[in-house]
Computed example of a mutant assay.
Amino acid sequence: MTTDDAPAPTALRSPVLRYTAFTTDPSGGNPAGVVLDASALDAEAMLAVAAEVGYSETAFVTASDPDARRYTLRYFSPLAEVDFCGHATVATAVALSERVGVGPIVFTTAAGEIALDTVATAAGAVEATLTSVPTRTRPATAEEQGATLAALRWRADDLDPALPPHVAFGGNHHLILAAGTRERLADLDYDFGELAAVMRRHGWTTVQLVHRLSPSRYAARDPFPVGGVVEDPATGAAAAAFGGYLRDLGLAPADGRIVVDQGEDMGRPSVLTVTVDPASRRVRVTGHAVPVPASA
């Protein structure tokens, strides 16, 4: 059970739970709000709850069939609804598994059905693996790349030519830009309003900035100004899209396993394990989630 079962607003039938995903340390990962029974809430009320919680996303279970282990989820940032959110999906799967037991779960989302498997680890935590909707990717246009670089205050020669800019989809659309150095990735000082305008114009949920540490390990940062958040410490949907990008470009390792380190530059380290199946366009993303203590 979470240690932060916060008092529920009057319209809520269950409290707002707070979990942090893609970590086993409550001080790391990406926090998400989780409402396990939001059947009485409309979109306006869910948005108000998400804004009050203040995390990059809050997940709301709007319908459930516990016997079949099937649930309907909606996701809200403090500013808007989003079709899919990986870290809130993992957090919700772990919260449910702690209450009804580990095993397979299916979430119906605006992006499509998301199958999950949850397991209990030897350390007593719960690990969740989500399987994405089919991924796809395309090269970014010169306008998309130029406008984004200007908003980031990056130059074209800051990019890694071995990892070309693409728009990738794994439930949401994300522009992927690869920094040529770890130092360039670490130095993130962008124009919030300008980047948000570019992203709204093109329908992107985040801009995923990556740096290749090795053929199977990447550092990542994900600005999220369209959600009212400067940066996401762990972005499961972008990790799924990135896995599809690497597969499509022939850059996935032979075993299909990629580790994405995110949140380090924010002081909230997160680890996302991405598994690419060359025979499928779906990508698996694995991580833990743990309750956020009331004092955090």
Rank of each mutant, 00 (worst) to 15 (best):
R212A: 06
E127L: 09
A50M: 05
A11W: 08
Y71R: 01
L251C: 14
P233R: 07
A68V: 03
R138S: 10
P233C: 14
A59I: 05
G180Y: 10
W204D: 09
H211P: 00
A186V: 06
A289Q: 14
A252C: 15
H202N: 14
A43C: 09
P293H: 11
F76T: 05
A151Q: 08
A252T: 15
P164T: 13
P225V: 04
E98N: 06
F60Q: 00
A115I: 05
G29K: 13
A38Q: 00
T181W: 09
P139Y: 11
E143N: 08
I176G: 02
T24L: 08
V16Y: 04
T3V: 10
L130A: 05
V61P: 00
P165I: 11
F107P: 03
G236K: 00
E127K: 11
L185T: 01
A59F: 06
A50H: 01
E98C: 02
L79P: 02
D255M: 11
G103M: 04
F22Q: 00
F169T: 04
G250V: 13
Y55S: 07
T205G: 04
W204S: 10
R13K: 13
N172C: 04
I105W: 03
W154E: 00
T89L: 03
E113I: 08
D261W: 11
G33E: 09
E231R: 03
A234F: 03
T72R: 15
P134Y: 10
L41E: 04
A110T: 14
A123K: 08
G170N: 04
A178L: 12
T89E: 01
P223F: 08
T62M: 09
D222G: 07
A91P: 02
A110L: 15
T275Q: 14
F84G: 00
T109R: 01
T10A: 13
S132N: 05
A6D: 13
A68S: 06
A279F: 10
R18F: 14
L79I: 01
G101W: 07
A128N: 10
V285W: 02
L36I: 06
P291C: 15
E194D: 11
L249K: 12
P291V: 15
E57P: 00
T10N: 07
P78W: 02
L159P: 03
I105Q: 04
R212M: 02
A238L: 11
N172S: 08
R136F: 05
P225M: 04
D42C: 12
W204Q: 07
A168V: 12
M1W: 11
L36F: 05
T148L: 07
I258K: 08
G193D: 14
A32E: 10
T206M: 05
V210F: 01
L246T: 05
A178G: 13
T109V: 12
A178E: 10
V229W: 02
L213K: 01
F169K: 08
